[in-house]
C-alpha cells in the first residue's frame, strides 16, 4: 500500500515535469540542431538532455525553465562530442580589441540577396561557440547574462563571441555576394 502512494506521488512529479519542461522542447531541439548540424544527432542530444533534466528536476528551484533546459542541452552536446572523441574546433576567446571593423569594406552588404540557404551555410560555417552564441541570442532571444550562464563564461566573452561571430557572418555573406557578381 505504501508503494501505491509512492506511485501516485511519482506520477504527480512526472506531470509537473512534463508541464514545465516539454513546452521548451522546440527551443531545445533548435539549439541542439544548430550545435550538431544534423537531424538525428540533434534528436539524440535532446533525448539524452531530457532524461538528464528529469534526473535533476527535483533539485531545480524553478527560476527560468527554458534557460535551465538549454544549459543541459548544451552540456549534453559537449559530453556527446567527447564520447565520440571529436574535439570541438574551439577558437580562443580574444578580448574585444580583436574586433576592429565589422566589415572589411565599409559598404552595405546586400543582405536582401542573402537567401535562407546562404545564411544557413554561413551559420554552419561558424566555430561552435560562436554559433551557439548567435543561436541563443538571435533565435532564442536570450540576454547576454542568460547566454553567459548557459555557456559558463563571463558576459564580456559573450559580447566578444557575438561580435566576432557577426563579423565572420558578414564577411561570408560579402564574399558570397561578390562571387555572384563575378
Amino acid at each position: 500500500m505504501l508503494g501505491e502512494r509512492e506511485r501516485v506521488l511519482k506520477q504527480n512529479e512526472l506531470t509537473a515535469f512534463n508541464e514545465a519542461v516539454l513546452p521548451h522542447l522546440d527551443a531545445a531541439y533548435n539549439v541542439a540542431r544548430w550545435l550538431t548540424r544534423n537531424d538525428q544527432d540533434a534528436e539524440d542530444v535532446v533525448q539524452e538532455a531530457s532524461l538528464r533534466a528529469f534526473k535533476y528536476w527535483k533539485g531545480f528551484s524553478g527560476r527560468d525553465c527554458r534557460s535551465w533546459l538549454l544549459a543541459i542541452v548544451r552540456n549534453t552536446y559537449y559530453s556527446w562530442l567527447r564520447q565520440r572523441s571529436v574535439q570541438p574546433e574551439l577558437t580562443p576567446d580574444g578580448d574585444m580589441d580583436d574586433v576592429e571593423e565589422v566589415v572589411p569594406n565599409p559598404e552595405n552588404v546586400l543582405l536582401q540577396n542573402a537567401d535562407r540557404e546562404l545564411l544557413k551555410a554561413a551559420l554552419e560555417d561558424l566555430p561552435v561557440e560562436f554559433r551557439e552564441a548567435i543561436v541563443l541570442r538571435e533565435m532564442e532571444g536570450l540576454s547576454y547574462k542568460e547566454i553567459a550562464d548557459i555557456a559558463a563564461v563571463p558576459i564580456g566573452t559573450v559580447m566578444s563571441r557575438l561580435a566576432r561571430a557577426r563579423k565572420r557572418l558578414l564577411i561570408y555573406l560579402t564574399n558570397a555576394a561578390a562571387r555572384n557578381y563575378l
Binding site: 531541439y29 537531424d39 566589415v103
Partner: peptide
C-alpha cells in the same frame, strides 16, 4: 556597421532558420 548589424540580426531572426522538434522526438522523450 550599425546598419549591417541590424540587417544581419533581422535576417537571422526572420529568416525561417529556427528548427522545430519533430513530433516523433516529443513522443520519444
Amino acid at each position: 556597421d550599425v546598419e549591417n548589424l541590424h540587417a544581419l540580426a533581422s535576417e537571422i531572426e526572420n529568416g525561417g532558420l529556427r528548427f522545430t522538434a519533430p513530433q516523433r522526438l516529443k513522443t520519444n522523450v
